[in-house]
Design a protein around this nucleic acid. Structure first.
Lengths: 115, 115
DNA sequence: CGGCTTCATCGTAAAACGACGATAAGAGGC
DNA sequence: GCCTCTTATCGTCGTTTTACGATGAAGCCG
């Protein structure tokens, strides 16, 4: 059990901020919303997302430390969130640094708002 | 195949419109958001919700007619949406009249917006 | 180089989902 | 009463999710 020295402030990519012009209705939007909603459809994943939003910087497997689940299980949830495009993972030495994908989050809000 | 005469304008309950004061964060909110998101986590259910929003009045099993699935399957999706609280079903003679639950939809938007 | 830490992946088992056809249950019409 | 129409529910089957421990891959430190 080392003190786990955090090298420095974890850094996440620039984060592009173009507007999203895609439609919020139609079959494609249905599928998109369903996929995003499905990714959010588990309390643990909601919690992970909130952790990443709160720390607005990206942390790594400290996430595991905050959750009552095995490391492998958390890794699977992270994978789902990543596949849904809601988060991103950057390799930083031996660690991996996750952060939210603001674009996807905005897209989700737009789609839900469009209901 | 009868012309299926629609008796009259289908009517849905008064629809209460009190504000929702519950928190948008915390473990309870996580579970609530996850449950709502899970219900939305299937394209067909998104489509059903949109149908009900579009016709802002409540229709019955015309929904089945708009979807490429068996009646029993649609019924199951409706059940999930109802269990999530997103829609409501009123028995009207031999038919059942579904409509969205505006309160739950607002709640969903608030929770997603709170991310 | 060896060892440690960090994370992903694999294998597995239980549960839940998604779809269907068949069947039951309730209301209306003849 | 009986038959029809509408909807829900049951039983089934294959797929996906959720969880775990065990194992593997990659990077750092001494």
């Amino acid at each position: 059990m080392k003190p786990t020295p955090r090298s420095s402030q974890p850094s996440c990519p620039p984060a592009d901020s173009r507007a999203d012009r895609r439609a919020v209705e139609g079959a494609a939007a249905d599928a998109e919303l369903a996929a995003l909603a499905k990714a959010l459809g588990h309390p643990i994943r909601v919690q992970i997302l909130r952790i990443l939003v709160r720390k607005e910087a990206c942390i790594c497997g400290d996430i595991v430390g905050e959750l009552p689940l095995a490391q492998s299980t958390v890794s699977q949830h992270l994978k789902m969130l990543k596949e849904a495009g809601l988060i991103r993972g950057e390799v930083d030495g031996p660690r991996v640094c996750y952060c939210i994908e603001p674009r996807a989050l905005r897209r989700l809000k737009a789609l839900v708002g469009g209901l």
